[in-house]
Structure formats: structure tokens, C-alpha cells
Amino acid sequence: MTETSHDEAASFEADPFEQRWIVVSLILLIAFMVTVTIAGFALGFQVPGAESRVDPRTVADSPPWNEPGLRDLGGGEYAAYVISRQYLFDPRTITVPVGSSVTFYLTSIDVQHGFLLQNTNVNMQVVPGEVSRLTVDFDEAGEFDYICNEFCGAGHAAMFGSVIVEADEGGA
């Protein structure tokens, strides 16, 4: 019983059923991969990226962050600049007409926060020194809370605001 005879006999061997399972699981994972790739890069369900950097100590002193709030870009498009700090969002409410497309820009002037806009896919980490950006289309009237979903200190549970989406004046 020598070791060399063993080493020569050694080989990669898997049960035939297990081999099939390997193939099935790889196909499954590739299917998921393709699906999320399409959603992310073709259909517009994208995650936040590297937007821009700011100095958290001074960012609130100069435009656009010295006047947080909504900007009407025309054509139903808006930009909303929201500053997060312990324990509030500034502005506390944002009002837009139904059918508008709002791009949210967030930054923090103290610790990390989160920005979770209910019933939408806007869910961002808000990090001092960074700007987070995502866009959402409001197709329905109603009130949508934005909630801080990263622990930011003792008053964290109270930190939220709301987007008020107003129905068309014409009632259309």
C-alpha cells in the first residue's frame, strides 16, 4: 500500500446526479444574473452610484445646499436637495404635482443616515462627504413618508419627512 499508487488513482469524481445538480444550479444563478442585469442596465432600475463629493463641514454654506428644497427644472422634472442631520431632514416636506419626476440629492452634515421613500425604490445610504442620488416618478397622488433607516443617534426613530403628491388641479 504505497502512497504513490493512491495519488495516481486520485481523480476528481462526482456522483452523476450531483453533476447534474451542479449544472442546474449554475443555470439558475445565470438566470438570476441575466434578469437583474436587464432590470438594472436596460429598464432603469438602477442603484445609486458615485455622484459627487462634498465637505460635510461646509457643504451647507454654498449652493445648492445652502437652500435645501425643491427646484423646478421644467417639463415635470424636479430636483430635490435634502440635507440630513441629527434628527431631521431639511426640508421636512416636499410637495409636487402628480406625474412629476423628482431626482433626490441627499447629503449629511453630521453622521450617516438613510433615506427610505415609502412605496418606491428610493432607498439610499446618506453619508457625510458624499452626495446620494436617485430619481423617482410619482404617478399617483398621495403622501409618501421618507424615513431615516440608518441608526444616527438617540433621536433616530423620530427622523422622517414626507413627499406630498398633489392631484391635478383639473382633476384629470
Partner: peptide, 8 residues
């Protein structure tokens, strides 16, 4: 995934 500062 939800972070700023890391490219998509």
C-alpha cells in the same frame, strides 16, 4: 448597493 461613492 445603496451607498453613494461607489460606482455602479
Amino acid at each position: 448597493f445603496a451607498d453613494p461613492g461607489v460606482p455602479v
